[in-house]
């Protein structure tokens, strides 16, 4: 009995890892909504030849977005996008990315 409960818990955990939104019952917040904008090109539902951002380290994302924003990292299009976000919004997006696997 105890064993099967542990097994069930294990399955639940692995299913949660597959889910897009770990906080399933909560209402969408601003960081999550902002980040959905990234998914248009950097999809989390399929692979293309755009860089994959799932699992991208939080601090690296902040530093790279800042670098695109201030022009110190050249880009084809991310330099144009990054300038559209405040420093606070960049942190919110990096925080949200940190929650998805």
């Amino acid at each position: 009995m105890k064993r099967s409960r542990i097994l069930a818990a294990g399955i639940a955990v692995s299913m949660m890892a597959m889910a897009y939104v770990p906080q399933a019952a909560a209402e969408v917040d601003r960081g999550q909504l902002l980040t959905t904008s990234c998914f248009s090109c950097h999809s989390i539902d399929g692979t293309g030849n755009m860089p994959n951002l799932v699992g991208y380290p939080r601090d690296l994302m902040i530093s790279q977005m800042q670098a695109f924003k201030d022009g110190s990292r050249p880009g084809t299009i991310m330099n144009r996008h990054a300038k559209g976000y405040t420093d606070e919004e960049i942190v919110m997006m990096a925080d949200y990315f940190d929650t998805i696997q």
Binding site: S40, C41, S43, I44, T47, G48, N49, M50, T76
Partner: peptide
């Protein structure tokens, strides 16, 4: 080289956005 890179991203954009919409 820049135009070619953007041509690669054109395909990447298509794959990305269609996965985001229908994937």
């Amino acid at each position: 080289s820049v135009r070619r890179q953007e041509a690669l991203y054109t395909k990447g954009w298509y794959d990305g956005i269609t996965a985001d919409i229908w994937g």
